[in-house]
Amino acid sequence: MELLLLNFANIDSLKLVYPLLLQGLQLTLLLAIVALPLSLLSGLTVAVTYSFAGARVRKLMVILIDLLRAFPVLVLLVLIYYSLPFFGLTLGSFTAVVVALVINNTGYFSEIFRAGLESIPKGQHEAAAALGFHKFRGMIYIILPQAVRKVVAPLASNSLELVKTTSIASLVALPELLRSARVAQEQTYNPTPLTAAAVIFFIMLWPFSHWVSRLERKAIIGKA
């Protein structure tokens, strides 16, 4: 037990690395704050475009969405960060991570919004038209609000996954929370910083994760 505490919850080590972790946490939050709205917006745009598109364009879009969904985000990040410089286009690690997250999550979010939009009965579109709503205004004021309500659970779940995925930034040397903890661990020869990072991640994300699992449970019970 003594050994366990000394290794995984070493107070001295914690005091030493605390500023580093705090800096890392800031960067993690910044990544999430920038990447999440951009991904949501991009996914929504794709889904709305899909609902206005003709049959052929739709098929093409589904293929593209599936390609995005099949591609591991880390591979995308490596491709962006390490191969674009060969073309003289060097992105900073922060920008590269944001771009990779947005491209990857556009696939997920557009699929979610699309499912929501498709679940709205045709009558709603017709009713909107009958009330003199232009197609686009009908979409924004009548269809979307209903569609988003139906997909709150997957939206929340995927948003949480996005925030968790910001940790891959550590693999392109961006000193966010996980990277800072790794650096600190190597400097202090002690895994306490890793424990600290895990605890910070847990405290920060647990309320959302708990909320998401309640939403998902309700959705499952609703289907039974």
Binding site: F8, S170, Q185, P191, F202
Partner: peptide, 23 residues
Amino acid sequence: IEIFRTLPQLVVLIFVYFGLPYL
């Protein structure tokens, strides 16, 4: 369930690979 649903996968992997050896 709550712990492993909440922590990012990469954090779990790093912990298992770099943290557990101390145990």
